[in-house]
Design a protein around this nucleic acid. Structure first.
Lengths: 153, 153
DNA sequence: GGAATAGTTGACTGAAACGCTCGGGAATTT
DNA sequence: AAATTCCCGAGCGTTTCAGTCAACTATTCC
């Protein structure tokens, strides 16, 4: 498991898709503008997302991307797995020939940690995030209402 | 939070230190040999670990490194924080001026995920890992005893 | 049919990070 | 003095990141 801004971009984009995605497909151009991510970079990311069957595409005018599955069935881990293909940090390349205690050390340690991180990220779905996002939006609106704020200049 | 092989190397090295560290300091040369990590690279990693006060050094013959704290007080997150200094994935650079829903989206999402991952890794200490490692060693020995094995050539 | 839209693909690029080497230190022990 | 070990900085080849550019195909609308 790797964790870089690449994965973050992908999740952000997917979340944008999740929040706009009703009947109509969402264009990359729109996501690019709203989330301030380069269009061409998005194309690369979505190319991988499509190959991993997380999204479906519609070409031509009025086209764009759909989520290929219900919100609750797309986890953050899925997305990260799709764009950040994993490297094996074990020295023996995932083979089972590490009877030596030192090898076993590196090996077991990271497969274990990986498993736990995935375990967590597997249980955070787009549905979860959308729900949180709505909370956040409400909070912002509320803050505005109580006029705690802002933009002094 | 970033998660790369760099952090893994550091944790592996610290675990080696944890398992050998009694009264005597442990040399980087030893860790290098046992864990098959470049000595110079280890020096760089330990330079950061020392600056973050996770280890203490003793120079001269018979010198090496000690853990600066008890096993149970060094978490995997500490180690990763020490060697992999974090990048902020938020576009506004951690500022609080993201009232806009789009900014809030990226922002809240990743700070939340980060927090959870750290939360997990903060609770995995060297003590935890050493315990697991001992289990593993026992299992290997047991496998050898029951002669399931191995090394056919 | 032709134009416009929008995805699809591939090649390429500058900058950064990774993983590592090398060389020269400075402290400490024998 | 010599050996050992940590300490530090400069540099280097490779990979990945993040992004650009250009050419393409499929679809819709006129």
């Amino acid at each position: 498991m790797r964790l870089t801004t690449k994965g973050r971009f992908a999740v952000t984009a997917m979340l944008d898709l999740a929040m706009r995605g009703g009947k109509n497909p969402v264009t990359l151009a729109g996501i690019s503008e709203r989330q301030d991510i380069s269009l061409s970079y998005l194309e690369q990311l979505f190319s991988r997302l499509r190959r991993h069957e997380l999204v479906e595409s519609v070409r031509g005018p009025g086209g764009g991307y759909y989520l290929a599955r219900p919100l609750a069935e797309v986890s953050v881990a899925d997305i990260i797995r799709a764009v950040d293909e994993p490297i094996d940090a074990t020295q023996c390349g995932g083979k089972e020939n590490c009877l030596d205690e030192h090898r076993c050390l590196t090996h077991d340690l990271w497969t274990g940690l990986n498993a736990h991180i995935y375990d967590y990220l597997d249980n955070v779905t787009l549905a979860t995030l959308v729900a949180k996002q709505d909370e956040c939006k409400d909070k912002v609106l509320q803050d505005r209402r109580t006029s705690k704020i802002t933009l002094a200049a």
